[in-house]
Design a protein around this nucleic acid. Sequence first.
DNA 1: GCATATTTGTCCGTATGTATT
DNA 2: TAATACATACGGACAAATATG
Lengths: 243, 243
Amino acid sequence: MRKTIERRSGVALWRQIADGMRLAINNGDYDDTGMMPSEATLAETFGVNRHTVRSALASLADEGMVRSVQGVGTLIERRDRLTFPISRRTRFSQGLGGQAKELEGRLVHQTIEPASPIVAKALNLATGIGCVRLETVGIADGKPISAATSYFPADRFSMIGDVYARTGSITRALAELGIDDYVRCSTEISASHAEGIDLRLLKLSPGAILLVTTSVNADTDGRPIQYSRSRFAADRVRFFVET
Amino acid sequence: MRKTIERRSGVALWRQIADGMRLAINNGDYDDTGMMPSEATLAETFGVNRHTVRSALASLADEGMVRSVQGVGTLIERRDRLTFPISRRTRFSQGLGGQAKELEGRLVHQTIEPASPIVAKALNLATGIGCVRLETVGIADGKPISAATSYFPADRFSMIGDVYARTGSITRALAELGIDDYVRCSTEISASHAEGIDLRLLKLSPGAILLVTTSVNADTDGRPIQYSRSRFAADRVRFFVET
DNA sequence: GCATATTTGTCCGTATGTATT
DNA sequence: TAATACATACGGACAAATATG
């Protein structure tokens, strides 16, 4: 199978090749052997010089995806894409049963600020009403999966940052604050290149892709309680919508 | 607002900047004036030379996003990210009401082939049963939005390729073949870099992002009739899930 | 019409990164 | 490892088109 590599496109050949190989690995293309083809074979496949393939493999090795062993070949170290169900009952920490051994939510930052027009509309508040903003990172088996910015009405949830920091879960934090149950109203999904702080929070390399969800959760009375924008490392997750 | 541009990352600065500006345009950041800031301002914002900004703008002009006029500035020509609802009633040609003037489905290729294990499982058939495979492209206002590979059981839908080629719509093609109504059972969503034929079909440049959906449609009796893998140009669409 | 500031377009040269042989 | 070719990025200077008062 001959891959398409474009020159003079503003993307270095080695990066295009690295992206292609990462895709193939996550796709399970090399699952039978657990190894990459030889550098010579890859160079032939992509139609480039072996040096260029080596640059691509070095980049993948850098992010822990593969490991090259002299005299043996290039071993695949990691291949995993978690499946997140999206439904009325969507929670970060549930629905992943068995897919990850350890789940953790970490509070990066919290502030109280007046609601912007967008946040106000989503939470059904007047613009300028105080909101708690949480910056959080979701971690599965020690690997950062998502970075999220969440807004809660400050009148009802002024303490949620502290509780979340202690419990590591929005669901548990809301439970302590009297919300036994809540539902996902809507989810908007898009994709973009990772930028700025997300590169660092999610330990991504430039050019990496984010799956971005914008969602609203409401209590059982239908009152909005949380507006979030979550950025998922696209090569680690997929979403599943049952309709 | 200072954007993060990474050097020595394997992605040319002008491309990172072009991607950032495309994102901002689609995000509506410049809607008040309908123009980009001056090249000098952009160069300052991104912390690069004006020539580099010009390369990025040239690339955006190339894809019809902006148009530069000497002495005036750089005008925004197009700003569009279609919102696709995902629900039990998901169809390409519906739910886009008003978002695009002209919608079209084009048949690229069709074959009849035995069902692979994955296709067979999705369509609830035995492996090896004949299936019609359609390669299609969805076009809105003359711009390719999605490329899709669809499988239908050949016994019931052997003619669907021809009907689709004539009608330009899966829904209408199924209607002619006796399926008045059908529902979306499940949708899986992921994202990856565009590769190979998708670059050409969707007229994308390397490094572009795809939103990939894998879905199953069934008739009203619950029998699966269509299994599809659709690749959407991520900078032209978003998905919306109501739950 | 005129002068001036602003903005894009084009040219020069130089240094560095990328890819091949 | 070295030599080569090309793409990328920067800096500066000036021309051409447009907007403003």
